Simulated assay, not measured.
Amino acid sequence: MEVNNSVVDKMMETVKKFEANKDNRTIFLHCYSMMTANMLLAIEQNKFHDTQWVNQLLNRFADYYFNALTCYDCGQETPTVWKEVHKAAASKKLHVIQHLLLGVNSHINYDLVLTLYDMLSPEWADLSDEMRVKRYQDHCLVNLIIGDTIDKVQDEVVEKYSPSMDVIDKLMGRLDEFLLLKLITAWRDKVWDHTQELLVLESEAERTKYILELEKKVLKKADWLDTQIGFR
């Protein structure tokens, strides 16, 4: 399948603007652009069961990020999970890993749930058991692509903003990448569970309540990343 790299181009244009303004939000977005580029390569290589569906999901996922970014920068109403990330990038002295994980937390634990729901809800009732399993397998395959990207992220982004991480990387070998992948994989497993729970809710009121509770959980993780993980 031939893919369109415009989403990566848009990310890198924004990264350049962030870097020019010494904006810490470049840390997450630069990493996200690398992950997205590897996802598009996997789509082009037909590694997924349904490349067209995954490509649509990838673009819808990116929409959530850019919509929140535009709203925040224009002073419009912004999802609270992203408002806190943007505020932390501008006003808090955090380690590069904290800035990265705060963005990952909001995008995976919140945006990805909504993205998967957007993609699955119109089709889920009519999907065969086999196709439901394939949707889940395509979701899980992303974990492998993340794993293949983490080393490059550490070398090209994390160490750029925190040179001392190069020393840590050499001392710990693959352990630090393994721990980061383990955390993200656990989050993505839970994302699928949250999506399944959303899919069985029958009313908009129930779904709204569920998403509000999800938001509280994501903000709690953000508070832990902000204050407790010990990178300061």
Rank of each mutant, 00 (worst) to 15 (best):
M1W: 08
N4H: 08
S6V: 02
K10T: 03
M12P: 00
V15A: 06
V15S: 01
F18M: 12
E19A: 11
N21A: 13
N21L: 08
N21Q: 14
R25K: 02
L29S: 02
C31M: 11
M34H: 04
N38W: 05
L41W: 05
L41H: 09
A42M: 00
E44A: 10
N46D: 14
H49M: 04
N55R: 08
R60F: 01
A62M: 06
N67M: 05
A68K: 01
T70M: 01
C71A: 12
D73V: 00
G75T: 15
Q76F: 13
E77Y: 11
T78H: 09
E84D: 13
H86S: 03
H86N: 01
A88S: 15
A89N: 15
K92A: 09
L94S: 04
L94H: 06
H95S: 15
H95N: 15
H95D: 15
V96M: 00
V96P: 00
I97T: 04
N105I: 14
N105A: 14
S106A: 15
I108H: 13
I108A: 06
N109G: 10
N109H: 10
N109M: 12
Y110W: 15
Y110S: 10
L112S: 06
V113S: 10
L116Y: 12
M119T: 13
P122C: 09
E123G: 02
A125K: 15
A125E: 14
L127G: 06
D129Q: 11
E130D: 13
V133K: 10
R135S: 07
Y136T: 00
Q137K: 08
Q137L: 08
D138N: 03
H139M: 02
C140L: 13
V142M: 04
I145R: 07
I150K: 06
I150S: 07
V153L: 13
V153C: 07
E156Q: 13
V157F: 06
S164M: 10
M165E: 08
M165F: 11
D166F: 04
D166L: 10
V167R: 06
G173F: 05
R174E: 15
D176G: 03
E177P: 01
F178P: 02
F178S: 10
L179V: 14
L180S: 12
L181R: 07
L181V: 09
L183Y: 04
W187M: 14
R188H: 11
R188I: 06
R188Y: 08
L198F: 06
L199F: 01
L199P: 01
R207K: 15
L214T: 09
K217W: 03
K217Y: 02
K217L: 14
D223I: 04
L225W: 15
D226E: 15
Q228M: 09
Q228N: 13
I229M: 14
I229S: 09
R232E: 14
R232V: 06
